[in-house]
């Protein structure tokens, strides 16, 4: 357990040391909300548009999406720190320690997920004044659901990074995954409006269920597409699966290759 808490602590320490990262994490969703959301909300002012967005204005529709998107990309990008640890050698320090490998990698993933969820909280606090229709009561459950998703993607990012030699390789995965999954999640336009083949992809996209759950809590049940149980169930499975994957990848890690 010591290894879990200390690796958790290390992620937190490192996060707050990197001021630029703290600023970027708040700026990025704000840019989406203001320059993307506010702009399009002017375009989508007709009653017709409100129907498309489930009876709410565009900014209210978009806000849970930006929240989920932020958590998703930030938690996945957390894997980069594993690559740094490889390159700066710190990973060897962990590999040669007697602590259970699963505990230390889990501590790191939970640390990342917690930090990312805090970012989500900041994002939502900034969002409430802009999107008036959001329900404050949805804040807590959204954060919990977001935490689960952050665990899943921090786990995936970490597992992938453990297999990568270079930052470039990981960046390739970031390119391949982050934007398409965001577009295919219903975060910025409704899944119902997508062509059939795109909808199929959206259903296969885990981010979809995080967006859906967040929308359920923050906007209302009518804005959601799936049952809450499905959102929670899928994300829970995914979090467990990716945590396990990361633990296995780390348990086998040597200096080979």
């Amino acid at each position: 357990m010591q290894a879990f808490t200390v690796m958790f602590y290390r992620q937190v320490l490192r996060f707050f040391r990197a001021r630029a990262r703290v600023v970027a994490m708040i700026l990025n969703p704000l840019i989406w909300l203001l320059f993307f959301g506010l702009g399009w909300s002017r375009v989508f002012q007709s009653p017709m548009a409100r129907v498309i967005f489930g009876g709410v204005d565009y900014l209210t529709f978009l806000a849970p999406g930006i929240f989920a998107m932020t958590l998703f990309s930030q938690s996945f990008i957390g894997g980069v720190s594993v690559i740094w640890d490889k390159q700066f050698g710190f990973l060897k320090e962990i590999l040669v320690a007697p602590a259970p490998r699963a505990a230390s990698i889990a501590g790191r993933i939970f640390g990342d997920a917690t930090l990312v969820t805090l970012q989500g909280l900041v994002v939502l606090m900034l969002t409430f004044p802009l999107a008036h229709a959001l329900k404050p009561a949805g804040l807590l459950p959204s954060l919990l659901l977001g935490f689960l998703m952050a665990l899943a993607f921090a786990g995936l990012g970490t597992a992938l990074a453990l297999k990568m030699e270079s930052l470039e390789g990981f960046q390739m995965f970031m390119m391949i995954l982050i934007l398409p999954l965001t577009f295919l999640s219903g975060a910025i336009y409704p899944i119902g409006a997508m062509p059939g083949w795109m909808q199929a992809l959206a259903y296969a996209n885990p981010l979809t269920y995080a967006v859906d759950g967040a929308r359920h809590y923050l906007v209302g049940a009518s804005a959601a597409r799936f049952a809450l149980a499905l959102d929670w169930g899928l994300l829970l499975l995914l979090a467990l699966g990716f945590l396990l994957l990361a633990a296995l990848a780390f348990r086998r890690a040597t200096l080979e290759g």
């Binding site: 602590y9 290390r10 040391r17 700066f88 962990i94």
Partner: peptide, 19 residues
């Protein structure tokens, strides 16, 4: 194999806790 972002003391502390 040090954590360059952390201080010397923090490096030692984290090491101790891991052990």
């Amino acid at each position: 194999s040090l954590d360059r972002e952390l201080t010397a003391r923090e490096n030692l502390y984290i090491h101790g806790r891991i052990y």
